[in-house]
Every structure is written in C-alpha cells, then in structure tokens.
Computed example of a mutant assay.
Amino acid sequence: MKYIINLNVIFDPDSRVLTLKNDIQQSIELSKPATRLLSELISNNRVNLERDDILKNVWEDYGFSPSNASLNNHISELRKAFTNLGISKDIIFTVPRVGFRMDAEIHPIQKAIAEPAPSHEIPTINQGVKISTNDAPAEIGEPKDRGSLYLSLKKHRMLSFVLALLLLLTTLIGMTTLIHTKKESISFLVTHDKCSIYNLNDNKPDKDYTAKIIKEMTEEGIDCSREDLDVFYAEAHPDNDRLRVRLLAACSKIDATRYKNCLNYKTVE
C-alpha cells in the first residue's frame, strides 16, 4: 500500500521510493533499513516510539543486528530525503531519553478505477495550463505564488545533486570493476553465505576485521542468503586518524568476469 505524507510526498514501500506528488521526476530511493524504519514510523504516527522497540521491529525481527548508530544514520537519511523533496517542517522528532516520533498528515492511497471524463468537461493539465475545446491556443497561466518559484529552484538544485551523485557512483563502480579484473590488487578474505568478501586495503586483516565487515554488511541490508555477490571493502584516513572513510561495494555477478550491477555504500565518521 502507498501513502501520501503531508499531501505532498508519496511513499511506496514496495519500490522503496519517496516521490513528489506533482512531479514524479523528483524521487528518492531509500535504503532497505530506512524503508522499514519509515513504515514503522507511519504505522505509529504521532506515537512516541522507544529506541528498543524500533531496533527490534526494524532490525532484529528481520534477522539483522540492531545498533543505535545505525538507527541514527537512517533517521538522518529520512530527514534529508523529506527536506530534499520540499518538506521544510521537521516531521520526525527526537524524543529525549525515549526515542523518536513521527508527526505528519498521512493517508493511505487506494487504487482508483479510472472513469472517462464527460465530453463537455475541459481537461486540465497541472496548474495554469488549460486545453481549449475550440481552435483557440492553450492558455498558460503565471505561477500562482512564490512557492512555485522556490520549488522550481529546488528542483534544479536537486537535479544537479543527483547528477553529481550519479557521476560519483559511476566512478566508484568503474574502479571496483577494474580492481576486480586485476586479481593481484585485491585479497580474498572469506565466504559469508553466498557472498565472497574481498579486502581492497594492503593490511593483513584478522578475525575481528572480517567480523566488522560482515556486521557493516548486515547493517546496510546486504543479504548474502539470496544472491551470489562479490563484496569489496576499503577503509581510509584521508586527513588524520580521527576521520575515517569506509566504502562497501556489493556487486551482482553475471559470470566469472562480469557484473550486472554494483551497489556502493560510503560512510564518513
């Protein structure tokens, strides 16, 4: 079932997508944990949810290891998604010493049966554009308020952000594929269910290092029980020892030398 939030954003749990109601080109794909988290918040709208209950219902019940850090990260992911789609008012609140609460106007979207419009009605496309029934040219109205101009500017900023993100992901995927074709530049670590895990660093990992990678895979929702995946892990300290950048790349295999697609997860701490 889909939901409409604050009469402006449509949430589809099946496709894991948030979409602007009046502009389907503006959409954001959520991670699997963030999708489960938003579904839990919607089911308990305007109710204070304790952290332990959220961790159990969103992570533990699905076989994943819960952690407060992962919960905070995915709360942040949801807040950023709503902000990017034009919901400036914070609808996910932190309840001190308790957990979180969602406070929004939420309506489930029922599937409607389309009926042909009567012939005497004038069809309308969006706001300010009217299709005439005679030979007169269509009338195009001016934007109704400053909100329309603000939304247009946000759309352009969002488009620039998406293009930059796609460029970054394309670069990361290309680097991962290139590294995979050069077996001497990576080291195989361990097989976890159907996943083969490789280390992109030069260090000699121990059992704790491998366990940490598997834990991070679980927190990101990488499911090794369903699909053969090659998982690549890299860790770097670009400025100093206090800043750490982690990269996970999970690639679906076509055959021994080619991949169908790769999903990249980057974390900066």
Rank of each mutant, 00 (worst) to 15 (best):
M1I: 08
M1S: 08
I5Y: 01
L7E: 14
F11H: 04
F11V: 07
P13E: 05
S15G: 00
V17T: 09
L18V: 04
I24L: 06
R36Y: 06
L37S: 00
R46V: 01
N48V: 05
I54E: 03
W59P: 05
W59G: 09
Y62N: 06
G63P: 11
P66K: 08
S70V: 11
L71E: 08
I75L: 12
R79A: 06
T83D: 09
I87N: 05
I91C: 07
T94E: 06
P96H: 05
V98A: 03
F100H: 15
A104Y: 00
E105G: 02
I109Q: 01
A112T: 08
E115Q: 10
A117E: 07
P118L: 06
S119P: 01
S119E: 11
H120I: 07
E121F: 06
I122F: 00
I131V: 13
N134A: 03
E139N: 12
E139C: 02
P143Q: 07
K144C: 02
D145F: 08
S148D: 11
L149A: 14
Y150P: 00
Y150K: 10
S152N: 09
L159F: 14
S160E: 05
L165Q: 06
L169I: 07
T171W: 03
I173P: 01
M175S: 10
T176I: 15
L178S: 15
H192F: 12
Y198K: 02
N199H: 09
N203E: 08
K212C: 00
I214H: 02
E216W: 03
T218R: 08
E219T: 10
D223M: 02
S225H: 07
D230R: 09
D230V: 08
L243Q: 07
V245I: 15
T257L: 14
Y259G: 09
K260T: 03
E269N: 12
